[in-house]
Design a protein around this nucleic acid. Sequence first.
DNA 1: CATGTCGCCTGCGAGC
DNA 2: TGCTCGCAGGCGACAT
Length: 263
Amino acid sequence: MPELPEVETIRRQLEPWIIGQTVVGATSHPSHKFTPAVEICGATFVSANRRGKFLLFGLDDSRELVVHLGMTGQLLPHAARDDKYLRASWDLASGDHLGFRDVRRFGRIRVAEDGVYEGALATLGPEPFDPAFSPQSLWMAVKKSNRHIKTQLLSQRVVAGVGNIYADEACFLAGVHPGARKLTKAKAERLHDAIVTVLRQGVDNGGTTLRDYVAADGEAGNNQFHLVCYGRYGEPCVACGDELRRTTLDARTTTFCATCQTR
DNA sequence: CATGTCGCCTGCGAGC
DNA sequence: TGCTCGCAGGCGACAT
C-alpha cells in the first residue's frame, strides 16, 4: 500500500539510476492499465518526480511516464523477466531493464504530455511539505465539506499522498476523531502538523512495509516499527492505555482511540 | 456539484 | 489437509 513516503523512497532510489537511460524496448500486460508502457520506446528519461502517490518520469520528448503503484505495485531495476506478476518491463540502452511488478493489478501506467494530467492526478491537493499546505488551507478545505475528516484526507484533494496508514496515524497524533466532520482552528493546526510529522517520519524510515511494499532496491522499509495506531486495534493506546478500537469509516478499516481522539 | 456505492484484483489467514 | 470466505484498499465509473 504505497503512500507518499513509500513512493518518495522509490523515487529517490530510482532518480540517479534512471536519468539518462534510453528505452529501447518494452512489453506490457494486455490490460489497458498497463499498455501505455510501450509508448515510450525511443525516449530518454530526464527526471524523476513525484506528486502525491504518483511517480512522474520526465522524458526528452515533452512527455512523462506516469506510474501509480496501486496497492501492490513495485518498480524494480533488474526485475526477474519471468516473474508472473510483471505487468510492464522496459529495456534500456545500457543493457539494464526496469520492471513494474504488481500482484493485484491495482496499479496504472499512463503517458502524459508534460504537465497535462487527467483524473486524480489533475485534481490533487497541495504537497504536504509545500507551504501551500498549511493549517489555514486545511481548515478552509475541511470547512467546505461535510465528509468525515479521515475520508477528506484520503480524497487527495485537501493534501496529496495520504493513505489509510498515515491517515490513522495523523488523526491519532492530533487527537482528532476520524469521524469528525468539522475542525476547530486549533484542531486543524494540530492535524496539519501531525500529517507533516507522520509523513516525514515515514520518509525518514524508508516507508512502511506491512505486506508487499519494497523500495526499488528490493529492501523493506522500517516505519512499521514506528506505527502507534494503524492496525493496532485491541492493543492499549500508547497515550492513555485504553484499548484501541477498530471501526469501518466510509468502507475503510479505521483504528482509533475513543478516549484521546475527540470530535 | 457533492456525496455514496461498487468493481477491480489476488494472496493470505482464519475457521470449519 | 483442503476448502470457503472475508479482508486488504486507491481509484475510476456510475448512481443519486
